[in-house]
């Protein structure tokens, strides 16, 4: 009983402590801006940012939705293709040896350098942003998934052989389940980076979306709107990350 009470308290503290720290930092920021009378275009007070959130809500939402869609599509396309290619890699040495170096090479190109190329290729529409977001999700997922699919111990594989298991039985009963924890570590990374990919894509060529709004607010010296947009985009990342974490808790029950 005492043990249960303790774990409850620790989860409470796990949430309470970061919230308290965040609240304190915001209070410090508000106090600092007021005390030093910092001009609004350099650093707006949190209260001003909050006001913009309310006054510009429609504008923010109009730009939020495209970024959300691009992020989600990019996440799905990027991680799904990485999973499929990882499966191909562990089933074929030729594929692995032929294509893994190429994947590594593509990953070494900075996303900011490749984004304009993709916008030129796919035009200013949705596709280019989805491709950029997908690209940024792809590599971590590929690497983790390959590791996960190769993670069964030699004993598990010998057991499968003694049981005369077929390739598909080995894949579905051993390789794939043992890759799930690795997959989720990758999905957590992808959940935050897909938003970055979408925003970078919008910087290069878009007139709508959080990325476009960030540029617009910066050039018009609308700092409170800029801050509100930044908070909204990091809020999106946090929300996606939380969704993946909850899905993991729900699906991966076998780990403590």
């Amino acid at each position: 009983m005492a043990h249960i009470a303790k774990t409850h308290r620790s989860t409470f503290m796990q949430i309470a402590i970061p919230l308290a720290v965040a609240a304190a930092l915001i209070a410090l920021w508000e106090g600092g801006v007021r005390f030093f009378q910092v001009p609004e275009y350099i650093a707006p007070a949190p209260s001003v940012v909050l006001q913009v959130f309310i006054s510009d809500f429609d504008n923010l939402m109009r730009n939020f939705v495209p970024t959300l869609i691009e992020s989600l599509l990019g996440f799905t396309v990027g991680t799904l293709s990485a999973v499929l290619i990882a499966v191909a890699f562990v089933h074929s040495r030729f594929m692995m040896e032929g294509f893994f170096p190429i994947a590594v090479f593509v990953n070494t190109i900075p996303i900011l350098a490749i984004a304009p190329v993709l916008v030129l290729l796919f035009g200013p529409g949705l596709t280019a942003k989805v491709v950029i977001a997908a690209l940024i999700c792809f590599f971590p997922t590929l690497v983790n998934m390959v590791r996960g699919l190769q993670s069964p111990t030699p004993q598990m594989m010998e057991l499968a052989r003694i049981l005369s298991a077929s390739h598909s039985e080995i894949f579905w009963k051993i390789r794939f389940p043992s890759s799930i924890p690795f997959l989720f570590s990758a999905l957590k990374i992808a959940a935050t980076t897909c938003v970055i990919g979408a925003i970078v894509g919008e910087w290069v060529g878009a007139n709508i979306g959080l990325g476009a709004l960030i540029l617009e607010a910066t050039f018009n010296f609308r700092s409170p709107l800029l801050y509100a947009t930044i908070f909204l985009s990091s809020g999106l990342s946090v929300a996606l990350f939380t969704a993946v974490t909850l899905a993991e808790k729900w699906l991966v029950k076998w780990q403590n």
Binding site: M156, A160, S166, E169, K173
Partner: peptide, 28 residues
């Protein structure tokens, strides 16, 4: 075969692990 490491599948409960041999080699 019984290995030194129990070689249980961590994503299966005890009874699901016992059942594994009935689910594998079905194709064969």
């Amino acid at each position: 075969f019984v290995f030194q490491s129990a070689a249980l599948l961590p994503w299966r409960t005890a009874v699901q692990n016992v059942r594994l041999p009935l689910e594998m080699g079905k194709k064969m």
